[in-house]
Design a protein around this nucleic acid. Structure first.
Lengths: 152, 152
DNA sequence: TTCGCATATATCGTGATACGATATAAATCA
DNA sequence: TGATTTATATCGTATCACGATATATGCGAA
């Protein structure tokens, strides 16, 4: 038999719902990227700053943790941190506990920008949340709904 | 006065919630990219196929519509379509209504891959939906919650 | 302690892809 | 028909994460 077993085949509605969810996510990302680049940063730089700022209080961010949080390779985090440091958004200090680690800390410049950006994001998320949640709900329930529609 | 007016300053919890939402979105994207590249496609190629497949029944996709849907420039859609066409995922036909337009249609190869990928995505989304919705809900309500906590 | 391995970060060259600027072609309209 | 707009295409470029590899620090065993 082939790969499609009729049992788990997706309906046109499934594909449409998946496509719509992606479209909503792209629009959010696009909004975010536009805001971010208006302030002269790249999206990934912004996400790095946010990851640092969003750390539980008094926890310190290292290059490796940042890599985990951003889902990039450690050496990519190194490069990202270099760029952020060159641009004056962060400072690096060697960890006193472990000389291999580099602690990454936000400078005032980053705090200011994050305040602006995160405010805008919060606002946009509040706008988009209903649509996103609706999309997720449709995907959660679709098989059930389809089955009911099909039985009727 | 400085940029922070106390009124609209974000709380540590706001930043943490924003960072957590981003982390969840990245994990979804990462899952998706891994699945997609296992089947030899790039993420953007997959999204293009899904956008085509997810179109309401009997509607035809053009290069320009694809650009809109993917939020990329028309000429970037041209290039993407070239690659998809070279790889045998889609075929192009000139529109009979308007000779400038290129209709883009999925080939069987694309349908097969989309069935697999979308099944996997649907499953993953069902897993992640509760967490995502929770994150969105926190961001929706946070100011209210903060205020209550602050008054208590 | 010292050796050896694991961990954390860094460097360098490369590839992929979306973009800006520009070009062509088809449609539309005065 | 000529002028303008719309749809798609081409070419050169820049960005950024990656693979492969290197260095340095920490740690465990004998």
């Amino acid at each position: 038999m082939t790969t499609k077993t009729h049992e788990d085949a997706l309906s046109p509605g499934d594909y449409e719902a998946l496509a719509d969810l992606r479209y909503a996510l792209r629009r959010f990302t696009e909004f975010s990227n536009a805001e971010v680049s208006n302030l002269g940063m790249t999206p990934q730089q912004h996400q790095a700053l946010l990851a640092i700022k969003g750390l539980p209080p008094e926890k310190e961010m290292t290059i490796g943790m940042l890599a985990e949080r951003l889902l990039i390779a450690p050496h990519s985090a190194t490069e990202l941190v270099n760029r952020l440091s060159d641009a004056g958004y962060i400072e690096r200090l060697s960890s006193k506990d472990d000389g291999r680690r580099q602690i990454v800390r936000l400078m005032d410049k980053a705090d200011g920008i994050l305040a602006k950006l995160s405010g805008a994001h919060l606002h946009e998320i509040r706008e988009m949340a209903p649509e996103l949640m609706q999309a997720l709900r449709i995907l959660q329930d679709r098989r059930k709904l389809e089955k009911i529609a099909w039985m009727a």
